[in-house]
């Protein structure tokens, strides 16, 4: 589904990603872990198409198409979804308000009929249950005055609505209390199908108790320096990242 090959990216001339190789197949859950500043969020941003990052080398293929050649909205329509680490506030725009435009543009792209107000509302009600989100929240200005948990639940709600084939969760767990974390993780798990894949970017192992990964990758200094199964996450939880840094230094 996703093939990242020797990806190099920089921001304002500073190299952040220095040769990422990663392949994600349908049905798989990949966790990307690593110390702060290792490039985890940069990787998520480059996949979603954030303009500030310049790809200097390498390629990203998504379902056989060149992802790097697409605008962010094209990527979303093709089925890539980024759950933001820090969902931004947009005063005067409610989730309901922009999501109908978003969903219908996505559906059009996928050759599906656009939804009228009634069917949109019906779909919304169904997906709201997944993340236990209240409709009144969705009618308010996006993320304005939302709690941390509400912001992240809203991200997962939008993910459920847009039905992506590849979801990238960028530190969705940071700053969440255990209840919010459980709700978010539960939502993600319920959306899982054999055709869909998930990349979970996280600093903490805690989330992986709820979203169980098939692979864990450790990102350090812009490269994936170690790949393992879910037990690698536990090892990192116990021993921290220092032993990884030492391994890299000694290599």
């Amino acid at each position: 589904m996703l093939k990242i090959n020797n990806l190099h990216a920089s921001i304002e001339g500073k190299a952040i990603l220095k040769g990422i190789n990663l392949e994600v197949k349908p049905g798989e859950v990949h966790a990307i872990m690593g110390p702060n500043g290792s490039g985890k969020s940069t990787l998520a941003s480059v996949i979603a198409g954030r303009e500030e990052y310049e790809v200097t080398e390498g390629s990203v293929e998504f379902q056989g198409k060149d992802l790097l050649d697409m605008d962010p909205e094209e990527r979303a329509r093709e089925g890539v979804f980024l759950a933001f680490q820090y969902p931004i506030e947009i005063p005067g725009v409610s989730t309901t308000n922009f999501l109908k435009t978003a969903l219908n543009e996505v559906r059009k792209h996928r050759g599906q009929d656009t939804l009228d107000a009634v069917s949109f509302l019906k779909l919304m009600k169904e997906k709201m249950k997944l993340v236990e989100i209240d409709q009144s929240l969705l009618s308010r200005s996006l993320n304005e005055g939302f709690s941390g948990g509400e912001k992240k639940r809203n991200e997962i709600f939008q993910m459920a609505m847009l039905d992506p084939s590849l979801s990238v969760l960028d530190e969705t767990d940071s700053g969440l209390d255990i209840d919010a974390l459980r709700i978010v993780a539960n939502g993600v798990n319920m959306l899982k199908t054999p055709e869909k894949a998930t990349i979970v970017v996280t600093h903490y192992q805690r989330l992986l108790d709820y979203i169980v990964p098939d692979f864990v990758h450790v990102l350090y200094q812009g490269r994936i320096v170690k790949t393992g199964g879910k037990e690698l996450a536990l090892q990192l939880e116990e021993n921290g990242y220092d032993w990884i840094k030492e391994e890299v230094a000694n290599a």
Partner: peptide, 29 residues
């Protein structure tokens, strides 16, 4: 705001629609 633009685009909203949504929000007051 480029961050707001990117957020909407990342949800599949085209550039001109995203701009329109944000300008409408600006004028909403």
């Amino acid at each position: 705001d480029p961050e707001q633009m990117f957020y909407l685009q990342a949800r599949g909203v085209g550039k001109s629609s995203a701009q329109r949504i944000l300008l409408r929000a600006f004028a909403a007051e």
